[in-house]
Simulated assay, not measured.
Amino acid sequence: MEQLKTIEIETINDINKQDFVKKYYKPQRPVVIKAAARNWPAYEKWTLDYIKSKGRNKSVPLYDNKPVDASKKVNEPVAWMKLDEYIDYLLSGKNEYRIFLYNFLKEIPELQSDIIYPDLGIRLFKSLPMLFFGGAGSKVFMHYDIDLANIFHYHFVGTKTAILAAPDDTPNLYHVPFSTISLEEIDFENPDIQKYPALKKVTFYKATLQHGDMLYMPEGWWHYMIYNTNGFSLSLRGIPTHPKNLLEAINNVFVVRNFDNAMRKIFGQEWIHYKTKKAYERVKERELQLV
């Protein structure tokens, strides 16, 4: 099967604020900083058992990779489970459910003392550190974040593979309208290039994260995640500073998301089918225009 055009994300061991801003933030280039959390208390302390002990009775939202269900709002969980039960679920070898966008500062505030916010020239939302959990083999569909944030993504326990694409490649990623996702059916590890030929035009960036590594994802970059082992990650977010991205983020959060939720409620699954069809048609129309 034909493969995607993929290059490895640059990996460095350390960097100061001035160099990070010059080499990565201003040009909006992704980078991996190895063991970036090495000086955090979390680097030694954060294991699945440790998190389990701290959040034993907390209810957590769960997500899966089933097709979008029109009966649910954008980012609405499919189920809930106690955090300790969920970690036992992962350790048993199951991987259907993931934890997505879990605000641990609100739910388990004592974990806050385990992290040290990096000084790399990006102002971070210190009230919105988010945790993400997944079992070995689980995947997160290709998407970009609704707020187009600058993201520092720290991984803990085992390994996780990230596949990224730049915002300029959005026209060839089968972007589903009125959303921030690509077609969920596409397996970006082993895509069907015959069915999705526009993917051949995209340059993808790939990295495998180990315990304590940090991946910088610039504003509006697409990302697809694969948990190679059981594990979890922490995302620290900074507001987009490019005016176009900031305006799009505001529109996404306050207009597009509410419009999409309203259309789901009114038209149900027909709305989802329409958006999926348009994702195909827009790519085909663009290719015909270029002939």
Rank of each mutant, 00 (worst) to 15 (best):
K126R: 15
N75W: 13
K126L: 12
D84G: 06
N103C: 08
I108C: 06
R123G: 11
E110H: 08
P109M: 00
Y97T: 06
G121W: 03
Y86C: 06
K66N: 14
M130C: 02
I87C: 03
R98T: 12
L120I: 11
D84L: 02
L90A: 00
G134P: 03
P77S: 04
L120C: 10
G137F: 06
K126S: 09
F132T: 04
P118M: 11
L120H: 05
E76D: 12
R98D: 05
D84I: 11
Y86Q: 02
E85A: 14
N75H: 10
Y117W: 14
I87A: 02
S138Q: 04
Y89C: 05
D114F: 05
N103L: 09
L91G: 00
I116Y: 02
Y89D: 02
F125T: 13
E96Q: 12
A136C: 09
I115F: 12
G134F: 07
Y97P: 02
K82H: 12
Y89S: 04
A136V: 11
L128V: 06
D84R: 05
I99E: 08
V68Y: 07
Y89E: 01
R98G: 09
D84C: 11
Y86D: 03
L128F: 06
Y117D: 07
S113N: 06
S71P: 09
D88C: 01
K72M: 14
N75R: 10
Y89V: 02
D119G: 06
K66P: 01
L131F: 14
M81D: 04
L131S: 05
F100Y: 15
K66W: 05
R123D: 14
P109S: 04
G134V: 09
S92G: 12
V68E: 15
P118Y: 04
K126M: 09
N75C: 14
F133L: 06
K94V: 00
N103H: 13
D84F: 03
G137W: 10
P77Y: 03
L128M: 14
G134W: 01
F104N: 02
D114M: 03
Y89T: 03
E85T: 09
L105V: 08
D119K: 12
S71K: 13
A136P: 04
K82A: 12
L105A: 10
K82N: 08
V68C: 10
G121H: 05
F133D: 02
D84K: 09
D84Q: 13
P109E: 05
P77L: 07
V78Q: 04
K82P: 08
I108A: 08
P77A: 08
Y117M: 11
Y102P: 00
I108S: 04
K126C: 01
F125H: 15
L90G: 03
F125M: 10
E96V: 11
L128W: 11
M130S: 10
K82Y: 13
Y86P: 05
E76W: 03
G93N: 04
A70P: 08
E107C: 00
L101D: 13
K72C: 09
R123L: 15
S71R: 10
W80P: 00
I115R: 00
I108K: 01
V68I: 10
K126Y: 07
I115C: 08
F133T: 01
I87V: 09
L105C: 05
V68D: 14
A79G: 03
K106F: 02
D69I: 01
P118L: 05
Y97E: 05
L128D: 11
D69V: 01
S113M: 13
I108M: 13
E110G: 11
